[in-house]
Computed example of a mutant assay.
Amino acid sequence: MMNVIFMGTPEFAVPTLKKLYEDGYEIKLVVTQPDKPSGRGKKLKKSEVKEAAEELNLPVFQPDIVKKQENIDILKSYAPDVIVVVAYGQLLSKDILTIPKYGCINVHASLLPELRGAAPLNWAIINGDTKTGVTTMQMDVGLDTGDMLLKSEVEIDENMTVGELHDILMHKGADLLIETLNKLEKNEIVPQRQDDLLSNYAPMFNNENRKIDWGLTAKNIHDLIRGLSPWPTAYFTMDDKIVKVFKSSYTNDNPDYEPGCVIKASDEGIFVKAKDGIVILKEIQMPGKNKMTVEAYLRGNKFPEKIVF
């Protein structure tokens, strides 16, 4: 069995760490991001990977910058056969990549070379893709540019949210990583170079690319909403205040209203005109309120009709 250093931070990485442990790999060290202030009280919050590592009684290392020489020396001292990296959150230097015999193996949440970067899960849905998956990759100094090892595909149906896709792929990734390590030890994998011409970048989100543009097609808007649900959420503004949207559907009915016009609000949802159809908002969060279904919101509130967002 290989000796492993595991590097990861969010919930997505936890199933892989637990799978390595359950399958008998000797996890020498778990490397994760430093605790960060969270909430109104700014109390330090552990990463999900740190919490899992402590439950398993595994040693934890939290360098602020992992590629500092003193931190590289610490990693070398564990003499790992492989470093497994899942959503760690820091770029690794060549000095780290060359430490283990089998290199650094990354579990990436897309079918590379598609969707390199920080948010491939979200963009797969926003782009309207009907399939995605996970890829194990031999890391190099580029951003998700290393040679591909194994892949596992997942179909995306037209109403799947990024939260649902995340939960499927984090377990798929764990299984694929174990399969990858087994085959690497047996010399049964031929790494494949990525075709850079086929790659797209999946950037992080900001206020601009989360905002709903009602001039887009109804399907485009529906895909944006589910691709950002439950986090970081798509939104629109009403009276200069942000309204978050968590769930929607759409129709191809194309009545004669301008894009962004609220056609009606009922227990079925808030019907808003898009470029070529109607988007039906089903779960929202009004300013200062909790997230709730439109049906629940309308029990105690009215939603204005015939206004234009």
Rank of each mutant, 00 (worst) to 15 (best):
F61H: 09
G133M: 02
N206T: 12
A174W: 03
T136H: 00
I168R: 11
A274F: 05
L20E: 00
L165A: 04
E268D: 15
R193N: 11
V245I: 15
A296L: 14
K275T: 06
S266H: 07
L91C: 06
G142D: 00
L75H: 09
T233V: 14
K131P: 06
N187K: 14
M2Y: 06
I242P: 02
A119P: 07
I83R: 01
T9E: 01
E114K: 15
K28W: 08
D140C: 02
S110T: 04
L198C: 07
K172S: 12
A119Q: 10
S77Y: 13
K241N: 15
E158M: 11
A87I: 05
L44F: 14
L224Y: 07
E164W: 11
N220Y: 09
T130Y: 12
A124F: 05
D253V: 11
D195L: 06
T130V: 13
V262P: 04
I263C: 06
N200V: 09
D73R: 10
N182A: 08
V30L: 10
K36M: 11
F303P: 07
W231F: 15
D256T: 11
Y250P: 02
K183E: 09
P37I: 13
D253C: 09
I221Q: 01
Q33C: 06
K28Q: 12
M292C: 14
S199N: 05
N187F: 10
Q62F: 09
Q285L: 08
L149N: 01
M139Y: 01
N182Q: 13
D73C: 06
I168H: 07
D64P: 12
Q62H: 09
E55K: 15
Y235E: 03
K43C: 07
T132W: 06
F271E: 12
M148S: 01
K45L: 14
N182G: 07
L56W: 03
P120G: 10
N106G: 00
L198V: 05
D253N: 15
D144M: 01
I284P: 00
M292D: 10
P100E: 02
Y88M: 00
Q90T: 04
K211W: 08
I72V: 14
L115V: 10
Q69I: 12
N57Y: 13
T217P: 02
D144G: 01
V86S: 04
G215M: 08
E48Y: 12
M137K: 00
T293F: 11
G39F: 11
A109Q: 03
L298Y: 08
G133T: 03
T16I: 06
K289N: 10
S199L: 06
L112K: 02
P259R: 03
I99M: 04
T161A: 01
I280N: 03
L198I: 07
D95G: 03
V190W: 06
M204R: 11
T135Q: 00
W231Y: 15
V162N: 10
D240F: 14
V279R: 05
K101V: 13
P191A: 02
F61W: 07
K289T: 12
S93V: 03
S199M: 04
K247L: 13
V49G: 00
E48S: 15
K19L: 14
Y21P: 03
L149G: 00
D195Q: 04
Y25A: 04
K302Q: 14
N106Q: 06
V14Y: 01
I99Y: 05
N220T: 13
D140P: 02
G8D: 02
L181R: 02
